[in-house]
């Protein structure tokens, strides 16, 4: 499973990283060939402005994957900060409060939160540029996915704290960041790595859903989600390729990442195989 996932993911990454250089067609160049189906000239056809869909698909991959990975890194840092703090703080009120904040975030549907925040930022004029809209999407997704890491890191930190080697380390005087860095973090990396993989998959799905609704990445920048949004009125007229290819690549990336997550979790730490069942729950 790990191997299959890794192979698919490598192919996707190669396409997205090397593809635009090899293909060499600008994703923004318009032409007179409007809505032409896949052919030898355009492998994935053209869109309503005559742009080469394969070029946009590759460029969109760079945007989507950058946002997904960036958001997950942010979620990892924020979530671990919350989770570790609440595992370490002696004051039970503070610890409970921290996790309550995470519970509130997890109870609010990601789409609802993201759409409202993005809608407000757009009103502010902040998301005028395509770059700003990508940055905002990354930040919002990062915050709303942080609880996934908070739960995992809190649970494994609490169980690590009970273990003899950590107790020994504390008895010999280590505390605070030193204890976290040398005794706790190395031992909780397995569930975190698996969770990272699941969350990137989830972020790809959420980011494309938000862009699909028109609150994510702004055109003319391409992104798998807004490519779907732009094609909505054409594909009921038969332009199936406009929807099929973005959906296919979103599906393949998410599948590969989920398989890798499952595989990594079992490979790195067989005993925690069912703890993080929550990770795949919030798919769109």
């Amino acid at each position: 499973m790990l191997t299959v996932g890794a192979v698919i993911l490598t192919v996707v990454l190669l396409l997205v990283v090397v593809g635009p250089i090899v293909h060499g067609v600008s994703p923004d160049k318009t032409s007179g060939d409007l809505l032409v189906g896949p052919s030898s000239a355009h492998i994935m056809g053209t869109d309503s402005l005559g742009r080469d869909y394969f070029a946009r698909w590759l460029a969109g991959g760079r945007t989507s994957l950058t946002i997904a990975v960036g958001a997950t890194i942010l979620a990892l840092v924020l979530g671990c900060a919350f989770g570790l703090t609440s595992a370490f703080v002696r004051n039970r009120f503070v610890a409970g409060l921290l996790m309550r904040v995470m519970d509130v975030l997890i109870a609010v549907p990601t789409i609802l939160l993201t759409v409202v925040i993005a809608g407000v930022l757009a009103a502010r004029g902040g998301a005028d540029s395509a770059f700003a809209s990508q940055l905002y999407l990354l930040l919002i997704l990062g915050v709303s996915h942080a609880p996934l890491f908070a739960r995992v890191s809190r649970a494994s930190a609490l169980s690590e704290l009970q273990k003899p080697h950590v107790v020994a380390s504390r008895l010999s005087g280590s505390h605070g960041w030193y204890l976290v860095r040398h005794s706790i973090l190395p031992n909780m990396s397995a569930p975190l790595i698996a969770q990272f993989s699941f969350t990137v998959a989830l972020s790809i799905l959420s980011a494309s859903a938000v862009s699909f609704l028109g609150f994510g990445v702004r055109p003319p920048a391409a992104d798998w989600g807004n490519m779907l949004a732009e094609s909505q009125s054409y594909f009921v007229l038969g332009a199936w390729w406009l929807v099929f290819f973005p959906c296919l690549i979103i599906f393949l990336s998410a599948l590969a990442l989920n398989m890798m997550g499952d595989g990594l979790r079992d490979a790195l730490d067989p005993s925690t195989s069912r703890k993080t069942g929550i990770s795949t729950v919030r798919s769109v």
Binding site: Q232, F235, V236, W240, V243, C247, F251, A254, L255, S283
Partner: peptide, 22 residues
């Protein structure tokens, strides 16, 4: 189920719309 978890929700929806709308 492993495959279905990875399909974005809207893909099913868009597929249905294509099937019954076109």
């Amino acid at each position: 189920t492993m495959v279905a978890v990875a399909v974005p929700g809207f893909a099913f929806g868009l597929g249905f719309v294509y099937l019954f709308g076109y």
